[in-house]
Design a protein around this nucleic acid. Structure first.
Lengths: 247, 247
DNA sequence: TGAATAGTGTCTATAAGACAGTATAGT
DNA sequence: ACTATACTGTCTTATAGACACTATTCA
């Protein structure tokens, strides 16, 4: 008890190390699209525990340099990929006594999306990090409970794609509606009807047309190119798309 | 570096207290409906810091007795209200260097819903905890960043009510469709059209009719009473209701 | 001219909004 | 009979699904 002392006195004598506290980490599921496949960035662990296994990029908070939890995620990603991610969304926070052999551990799981090229260029120089097609990840023995974390992030990605314009973030600008539809289909793992897709996106008035480009595969009718309009990233549809409903 | 040692050796020499780590807490926004008002449970802090201020129930993880982060939330709520909450949903995790005067601090914010009576009965015996109408909370000087946490939870409540059957959890069973609609309206802070509401709920086949009851206010046509069917709590609509769309 | 890609017209199906109507009780 | 509450009929509106059709380019 601290009866009769002031808050200043209390804070003065307070030392966090007098109490048991869990390990606190941040992990990031960074997704991209490459060669018509959804890919996720993994790093090979160089230290114990689970040395040598593939894991999500992440790590401990630096109490000195990080001012927000968010900053820790951004910093860890920058260290691994050289990319400043625009969109960084919290998926879930998982904490229990089993997930880390060092003891009771909590991780805040974030999710991010980037176009493929710039990250890939940087990644070439880092031998312990690479993109993995999401289907191959299932076969890898990941560190800690990262298989579960990957699953959580992938499900969130699928669900949010059904009522947002999240896939815009995996495309280089400008892009065609065909490319955007392919991105939606890969992130949702579903096939979408062309007319419905175009009607939905165009009616939302979230894209600006910025000229013409060559069609996919080099031949065929030239395609209109688009760029997202201001604040279009936050656009929410009032109806889900492609019968996609799950928890 | 830990070159050339085994994982067992590494774990043997590992001591979490060798590293700086943030404070890790759990906070719960427990909502109920009473006298046609959305209410939230707050406790008056008995210890520093922010002694005497109202705050969300919550606290530190007990590394010995809690095996999941979830368990910490359940335990803290049970200690304050005597209620075992069925539904406990993660809202967000907030961490930064400013929110707690004791230092870098992270909190996992949960949200829960209960029917009013049983909690209230227990609360009577606890002098430092009470239900507050959500509108009055805005005027209170809450501890830490709890005003922001209350806001986050309230927004999540509003959004999820637009495509789930969350409000079922604030009603005692059985309930009438009129009562259910009132619950939806209060949680969404919107008015719903009666026919649309009933059509939506009944078509979803998530309720079982279990007899008749007296109408609201005692007079008028008797009302059909319902109980949620098995697994109905997870039901998701593919379309939002009542024009409710926000972040 | 044929193949490939981009883009449209239009009918149907589903579910919400609006709102007036009917049904069944108490006083 | 009047009022209060519960519940329904039905027309309109919005948007997705289906799918055949047209448009523009290259080889």
């Amino acid at each position: 008890m601290n009866q009769g002392i002031t808050e200043a006195q209390f804070l003065d004598q307070y030392n966090p190390k007098d109490y048991d506290s869990p390990l606190m980490t941040v992990d990031i599921a960074l997704f991209t699209l490459h060669e018509s496949t959804l890919q996720i960035l993994l790093v090979e662990r160089g230290d114990h525990p689970h040395k040598g296994r593939w894991a999500l990029p992440g790590g401990f908070i630096d109490l000195k340099s990080d001012t927000e939890l968010h900053d820790t995620a951004k910093r860890k990603l920058r260290e691994k990929t050289g990319v400043d991610v625009p969109l960084l969304e919290q998926v879930n926070t998982i904490g229990n006594a089993r997930r880390d052999p060092r003891g009771w551990s909590v991780t805040a799981l974030y999710m991010a999306l980037v176009p493929h090229a710039p990250t890939a260029e940087f990644i070439e120089t880092v031998k312990d990090a690479r993109w993995w097609p999401i289907d191959e990840v299932r076969k890898l023995p990941l560190a800690f409970d990262h298989a579960e974390l990957v699953h959580l992030a992938r499900e969130r990605l699928k669900n949010k794609t059904a009522y947002t314009v999240l896939p815009i973030h995996v495309l280089k600008q400008p892009f065609s509606l065909t490319q955007l539809q392919q991105a939606f289909e890969l992130l949702m793992d579903a096939t979408l009807e062309k007319k419905s897709f175009r009607r939905r996106i165009l009616n939302a008035e979230i894209l600006e047309e910025v000229g013409e480009g060559v069609p996919e595969g080099g031949r065929g009718r030239p395609t209109a190119l688009y760029r997202p309009a201001k604040n279009s990233e936050q656009y929410l549809f009032t109806r889900v798309f492609g019968d996609a409903v799950s928890s």
